[in-house]
Amino acid sequence: MLERLLRWKIPLIIILVLVLVGTIHYTSIRRPDITRLEGILRDVLSPFQWSFSRIGGFFQHQVAEVNRWRGLKERNLELEERVSQLEAEVFALRNHRRENEWLREALDFRDEGEYELLVAEVIGRSPSQWESTIVVNKGQAHGVVSGMAVVTNAGIVGTVINSSNYTSTVLLIVDAQSATGGLVQATGDLVLVEGGQMGQTTLAAKPLSRDTKVEVGDVIVTSGLSRIYPKNLPIGEVVAVESRQYDLSFSAVVDPFVDFTRLEYVLIVMPQEES
């Protein structure tokens, strides 16, 4: 029995292990293009993912609706207060915008707010908790390629890491593999915003210079240095500042503006055509 086992099973296991180690090694580096087989599997699976996402979304909406009705009166009072605050803020911002437009014209700045955006529906997410990715229903057929930024109106979501014909995988900024250049809006100090935090729901902002100052409540926006994200897109708000060993440095806990558990639609930033 053992001899028979040794005769064919052990060589088979050795070959299998070698093949697996080879494929793991080959695919350990991030690849902009996926193989044909991967593309086919993803495209075949996407209708199933879409169906289950719709069903899940329906139930999530129902639960959210019940919760919304519960706190409607309190919410109304809060909103009235907030509206009056925002009216005052809008007035100030209008003044700033007029001033900004005048300065742009004066300095001949290119308006960086004009991007071509492609709306995509979220149809899936990573199968494991150790990767924070989502799958959207736009792929190479729609002009989506690896490296494109993905945002919502609330802030940045992540970057496209690969795409099949009709789907794309987006690495979320909360993933451990993600690092984004950011700056503190109030001071303009540069920070590196990294994922991989507790529950994959917060980010860590690490200073790039010793003089960087970050306080709770500061807003972190994209620095525009990475060439992936356009400048000044909101990332999140600092909710805590943690000192590191011997107080030589710090790490700020950033609460992202985007709620990654409720993503339904995202915007893919398409490259601007050179004029």
Binding site: L45, S51, I55, G56, G124, R125, S126, P127
Partner: peptide, 24 residues
Amino acid sequence: IIVGLALQTASPGLVVFGRQPELL
């Protein structure tokens, strides 16, 4: 396997007590 994979990767996925089971 296909249904398990689609359930595992659907968004919003199966969340129980704030965690998602490793279905496969």
